[in-house]
Amino acid sequence: MNRKEITVFEDLLGSNKKIANELRHYLRAKGIFTINLMSSPGSGKTSLIEKLIDHLWPQHPLAVIEGDIETDLDAARIRAKGVPAWQITTGGACHLEAKMIARIIREIPEKTEFLFIENVGNLVCPASYDLGENLRFVLLSIPEGEDKPLKYPKAFLTAQGLIITKIDLLGPISFDLDKVKEEARKINPTLVIFTTSSRTGEGIKEFATYLIQQRQRFQENNA
């Protein structure tokens, strides 16, 4: 019996990246602009999507994929607004993978302009998985505290933007907004930062307008 060393040099996330690139190609051809939302559980991802729907729907057709470990509660909230939504229950897995998105991507209606993918509530693992998105946004809510960018750097490093949510709680909860922005930009100087409140509606219109502009640019680049 001979022992032999076999050189491979293969990325363990290579198969996910390959599927993500196929998704990106498919979504681009369909004119669907995709946003991957990542955050800790309870930072307001679903509420933000609900509020964005109020600004975008039905003039800008959109679809939502909800990732959770269990239940279809989030997809039901989106469907209640008349928007097509799919629930992926990972059954314990802490992140969404491109192959999970690939299973449902062809069900998304024609003429959809925006696809929101709400990742499983977790600031660690989702950061490693490309889902074929155009934009990746991290949400950080005021009650979570201002130390999250430094504690979970990869999520902030791989994102294009940060949304500081529940801004209406600024005041009752001690939170240094300037400091968190500065620390997030220490990790990723190119981060686009929004502040929102799904309760008062603050900042939602600005974010919706930004997304419309970004999609327009994406369409122009595709033309």
Binding site: K4, E5, F9
Partner: peptide
Amino acid sequence: LPFFCPVCQSKDVEILDGTELTLVSFEAE
């Protein structure tokens, strides 16, 4: 972290390596 240039102190850096998880090789019978 934080990544910054020791020469000009800029924080605007492009990451080239160090985010990978690669199977380099294996030994088989």
